[in-house]
Design a protein around this nucleic acid. Structure first.
Length: 379
DNA sequence: CTGCTACCTGCGCT
DNA sequence: AAGCGCAGGTAGC
C-alpha cells in the first residue's frame, strides 16, 4: 500500500473477491496494477474526490474450507482521506450490510435447485454513483467490457479533472481523474470529439443525456448529478424511476435496470439482456402468459416513456425472476450471469478475465488520428 | 404494437 | 493475412 495510513477489514472469500467484483462488467474504472497487485480508482467520498487503493490478501492459506478469510487493505493516495471515512464509504460501496451467503441459503437455494451450481464465490452487487453508473451503462450498449472500460477512462482523462495528491504518486506514475459531471461534458465535449475518442454512436447519447441533466439540475436547484438523481429516486417507485431514466437518450429498459440495480440499490431488479433472456427460456422454460402481459400493458399505460421503450416479453422475464428469487433477485442475476457468461465475455478464450493494465496514451493518440481521418472521409 | 435494421469500434478467430 | 462476427442494446421506421 502506497498510503502511509492504510486501514483494513476482514471478509470471507465467498462474500467478496475483488477480482470477481471489480472486473466483470459492473464497474469499469478500477485499474489493476500487476506489480503491486493493487486496484486503483478515483471515488467521490462525502463530496470530495480521492484516489483509492485496494488490495486483497488471503489469510490462513492452508485452510481449504469455504470459511477462508481475506483481508482487504485500503488507502488513499497521499492520505487525502482519513481511514474512518474511507472505511465507511467502502462498507457502503461494497454493500457489506448484505450477506450473500444468507441470501443464498434463505432465498435462492430453497426456491431454485439450479443454484446448487452457484454457491457464492465472492460476487456481489455494488452501490455505485448514480451518474457514473448511468453514463457507463449508456456506453455498454452492444459493446464489450474492454471497450466500455476504455471509453470510461477516456471520458475521465479528457473531460474530468486531474487529481494530484501532494505526497507520493503510485509506482505506475499514472494520472488520476475525476469522473466528469454533466456540466464538464456539456462544456468540454462535443459529439465529434467523443466520436474521435472512439465512442461511436454513443457519442450522441452521452451529449444529449448530459445536456438534459444540466437542465434538470438547474430546474430543480441541484449542482451535483448524483444528488439530483438520488432525489428523483427518493420520490419515486421503481417503475417511476425507470420511467425517468428511460427519458434519457440511449437509455432503454436494460440500461435503466442496470442503473436501478447498481446505482440505486434496487436489489430486486433483474436487468434482462440477451443472455438472461436465453437462460430464462432454455433453463427456466419461460413462456409468455397473455394475461400477465395484458396486466403489464395496463400498468404501463400511464407511463409514456416506458410504454414506448419497454419490451413486454423481456419485462415479463424480469417479473418471473423477481417472483422466483425474491427481494434480492438482482443479486441472484448478477451471480448467475457472472458464473455462466462472465467467464467468456470480455475475456480471453481460456476463460481468464484479463487484468487490466493502464493503457497509456501513445497508442491511443495514433488511433485517434486514424479515426478522425475515417470520419472526415465518410462525411 | 411487434418486428425488423442500422449503428461505431476493436478484438478474436479463421 | 484480410475479413467476418460479435459484444450485458437502443432508436427509428
Amino acid at each position: 500500500m502506497t498510503g502511509a495510513n492504510y486501514g483494513s477489514f476482514i471478509v470471507r472469500k465467498k462474500e467478496l473477491l475483488l477480482d470477481n467484483v471489480l472486473q466483470v462488467g459492473q464497474s469499469f474504472r478500477w485499474v489493476y496494477n500487476e506489480s503491486s497487485q493493487e486496484y486503483v480508482t478515483t471515488m467521490k467520498i462525502s463530496g470530495q474526490y480521492h484516489v483509492v487503493l485496494l488490495k486483497q490478501v488471503e489469510l490462513n492459506q492452508d485452510d481449504e474450507s469455504d470459511l477462508k478469510n481475506t483481508i482487504v487493505q485500503y488507502a488513499t493516495l497521499g492520505d487525502t482521506c482519513d481511514s474512518k471515512s474511507l472505511e465507511s464509504h467502502l462498507m457502503d460501496y461494497f454493500r457489506m450490510d448484505v450477506s450473500v451467503e444468507n441470501l443464498y441459503n434463505k432465498y435462492w437455494l430453497p426456491n431454485d435447485v439450479r443454484f446448487k451450481a452457484h454457491y457464492p464465490t465472492g460476487n456481489r452487487m455494488l452501490a455505485q454513483e448514480p451518474w457514473e453508473t448511468l453514463v457507463s451503462f449508456i456506453c455498454s450498449s452492444n459493446n464489450n467490457i474492454s471497450r466500455i472500460t476504455k471509453m470510461c477512462h477516456e471520458l475521465c482523462r479528457n473531460f474530468g479533472t486531474e487529481l494530484k495528491p501532494e505526497i507520493d504518486r503510485d509506482d505506475t506514475g499514472s494520472s488520476h481523474y475525476t469522473f466528469p459531471s454533466s456540466d464538464d461534458i456539456v462544456n468540454k465535449a462535443t459529439e465529434d470529439k467523443l466520436r474521435e475518442l472512439g465512442f461511436g454512436y454513443r457519442a450522441k447519447y452521452i451529449m444529449e443525456t448530459a445536456k438534459l441533466l444540466v437542465e434538470q439540475k438547474k430546474a430543480n436547484d441541484f449542482t451535483d448529478d448524483s444528488e439530483y438523481l438520488l432525489s428523483v429516486k427518493d420520490s419515486s417507485s421503481y417503475i417511476e424511476l425507470r420511467e425517468h431514466l428511460m427519458g434519457y437518450t440511449g437509455v432503454g429498459p436494460k440500461v435503466a435496470d442496470c442503473v436501478c440495480l447498481m446505482g440505486f440499490r434496487h436489489d430486486d431488479v433483474v436487468p434482462v439482456d440477451v443472455h438472461i433472456s436465453r437462460i430464462a427460456k432454455r433453463d427456466y422454460k419461460f413462456q409468455v402468459n397473455k394475461k400477465s402481459m395484458e396486466n403489464l400493458r395496463k400498468q404501463y399505460a400511464s407511463y409514456p416513456v416506458t410504454k414506448k421503450k419497454i419490451n413486454l416479453e423481456l419485462d415479463l422475464i424480469r417479473v418471473m425472476f423477481v417472483k422466483k428469487w425474491g427481494k434480492y433477485a438482482g443479486w441472484a442475476q448478477g451471480i448467475l450471469f457472472s458464473n455462466e457468461i462472465g467467464k467468456s465475455s470480455g475475456a480471453t478464450t481460456n476463460g481468464d478475465v484479463k487484468k487490466r493494465q493502464l493503457e497509456l496514451d501513445i497508442q491511443v493518440k495514433e488511433e485517434t488520428v486514424e479515426n478522425s481521418d475515417k470520419i472526415k472521409r465518410k462525411k
